[in-house]
Design a protein around this nucleic acid. Structure first.
Lengths: 221, 221
DNA sequence: CTTCCACGATGAGCAGGCGCATGGGGGCCA
DNA sequence: TGGCCCCCATGCGCCTGCTCATCGTGGAAG
């Protein structure tokens, strides 16, 4: 389950991302409205958390532009209380829900889950079966045959990326971008490390290395 | 999936071409605006990456000219940050998206893919069938009949060039430019070497030599 | 028809890089 | 404070990419 957070207050963005990641979501963060629009328009997210006051392009316009372009991704708007912006306006532009700052963290999580549930992309209901593997994205559980395989958060996130694009080659850069922060400037070796542990836990033949290109999760034919 | 990069900074152009090639795109590079216009007008590209500051003819005019001539190829503009040129102007002339220098490489790739996806020319699902051969760009996979043929990155890139222009004669110089770098200064014999290994893996009759001109991938009739 | 030459094909070999495994340190949570 | 997870560093092995040398072959000229 992939979330995009568009929020320029770095501290807030960071804590939201942390919390939601801990909840088992794959979270990307951008700090600029226009950038947010572009990322969301790629269509790879299940939900967008969108602040209104943003540099580059404000949240209303981002939201309106997304809807105009035909994207129906659920949008949860974050509005400041100071009255300059109006909640109704947010809903008019096509947001699905809004939250007034300051809000409690549990409320946010609840709203996010509620929106996802409302969409039928049920939080607990996306189960993919790939050969001997069953991946339950909502419950963050993985079954290999009959036995459950315990995975850490990061391990699961990496696996989720591969599962979502099963059969395609996913580059290490893309995995880094999705699982870690897209602005992550670390050693791509991390990805190799996690792939390694995944193979150890799930069997070596599931994840194929495509040298010079990335990894590919074998889809059963 | 064929891209044209119009960018006069040779170093930047080179690194972009490298990366995008590694992503599985067939990339051409030109360093001059007018030249870029001509190539793009030929209509053989799926997307154009267009710098604004260019010798010969600036990016706005190239873009405008293309649109005026009725071409709707997606255009991704590269703008310098110095403020002399305006982002809005770029979008006004008919560009589909823009990116402000300096940009990270992953962002560029994401935008390129997003644009292509938006156009419906699915990035991950371009499968071409040529007689007994099936080439899947997204999965970086080649099937010869029922069996999968493992190819290295370079082998795949050379094959892709030939596949994209199946039935046509492709010169060695062109293959060099596409698969290697524009300014590659090595032994042209490399191409022969790779054609040789491809023949070994895929069967000798698939790639015909046209003496003095290049190679031609036999298209099924 | 023969001969010669230039272009192309192919195999061997080398160097560098990519991917993998492993161990250790640091931080967060119980 | 202890344990687990995450990240980083290092070393190693194999594969890939490329060069070079040799052999094959097509085509034109005599």
């Amino acid at each position: 389950m992939r979330l995009l957070i568009v929020e320029d207050e770095k501290r807030l963005a960071l804590s939201l991302a942390r919390g939601l990641t801990a909840e088992g979501f794959a979270v990307d963060v951008v700090h600029d409205g226009l950038e947010g629009l572009h990322r969301a328009a790629e269509g790879a997210y299940d939900l967008v958390v969108l602040d209104i006051m943003l540099p580059g392009m404000n949240g209303y316009r981002v939201c309106a532009a997304l809807r105009a372009a035909g994207h129906d991704v659920p949008i949860l708007m974050l509005t400041a209380k100071d009255g300059e912006y109006d909640e109704a306006e947010g809903l008019d532009t096509g947001a699905d829900d809004y939250l007034t700052k300051p809000f409690s963290y549990v409320v946010l999580v609840a709203r996010v889950k509620a929106l996802l549930r409302r969409r039928g992309t049920g939080v607990g209901s996306s189960v993919r079966t790939l050969g001997p593997l069953r991946v339950d994205t909502g419950a963050r559980r993985v079954l290999h045959g009959e036995t459950e395989v315990p995975l850490t958060t990061k391990e699961f996130a990496v696996l989720e990326q591969l599962v979502v694009r099963a059969g395609e080659v996913v580059s290490k850069a893309e995995i880094l971008e999705h699982v870690w922060d897209f602005a992550y400037e670390g050693d791509p070796n991390i990805v190799e490390v996690y792939v390694s542990t995944l193979r150890k836990k799930l069997g070596a033949e599931l994840i194929r290395t495509v040298r010079g290109a990335g990894y590919r999760l074998e889809a059963p034919r």
